Computed example of a mutant assay.
Amino acid sequence: MTGMTELLKGALEGVVLAHIAQGETYGYEITQYLTALGFDEIVEGTVYTVLLRLEKKGLLAVARRKSPLGPQRKFYTLNEAGKAYLAAFWEKWQFLATTMTHIQEGKA
């Protein structure tokens, strides 16, 4: 869906963390995942910026390994801090989603 970039910016960290929580992955694979979900406007550079930010926050375990297709890749998994951050993200998301639904339905 087009026009989602601005709305997704605030949630992108959570979406990326949720994907990493499913198992070890790397940047390009995350970009493909987002594209498959329909977030066509998300470019690879944006994903790498998010990954760097998450890494600096201490939320990811990072392993560098040689790729069969070329140079080394960074592979990401969630550490305990990342799991806690993701749980807090989903709590905030649930509050926001519920509130927005109430607003849309004229109940707020």
Rank of each mutant, 00 (worst) to 15 (best):
G82M: 02
G106R: 11
K83G: 13
N79C: 05
M4R: 07
K92Y: 13
A63H: 12
P71F: 08
E29H: 10
G23R: 06
V62C: 05
E29T: 07
K92L: 14
L8I: 11
H19Y: 15
V47Q: 02
G58I: 04
F95I: 15
L54P: 03
H102V: 09
G27Q: 03
L69F: 13
L52R: 13
L34F: 04
K56Y: 12
Y76E: 04
S67K: 06
Q104H: 15
G38L: 07
G27T: 03
A11I: 09
L59F: 08
L51N: 00
T25Y: 00
A11V: 11
Y85G: 00
R65I: 04
A88W: 06
G23F: 05
E24H: 02
G106M: 07
E91N: 12
E105L: 15
A108C: 13
K107T: 10
K57E: 10
R65S: 07
R73A: 05
A87T: 13
W90P: 01
E6D: 14
P71Q: 13
V43D: 12
M4V: 11
G3C: 06
E41I: 04
K107W: 10
I20G: 00
Y85V: 00
A88H: 10
E29Y: 07
E24V: 05
T5V: 08
G82P: 04
M100K: 14
L78C: 04
Q32I: 05
L17V: 04
F75Y: 15
P71V: 08
A36R: 12
M4A: 09
V15Y: 11
L52K: 12
I30R: 00
F39W: 09
F39R: 01
L17R: 01
R64V: 13
T77E: 09
A81M: 06
I42Y: 03
K56R: 14
I20K: 00
L51I: 05
N79K: 04
G82C: 05
A87H: 10
A18V: 02
A21S: 13
Y48C: 03
A21P: 00
Y28Q: 08
G106K: 08
A97T: 15
Y26K: 03
A61W: 06
I30H: 00
L7E: 13
L69C: 05
F39G: 01
G14S: 08
P68R: 10
L17P: 00
I42P: 00
A97E: 15
E29Q: 11
H102A: 14
E24N: 02
I103T: 14
T101Y: 12
A18D: 08
Q94A: 15
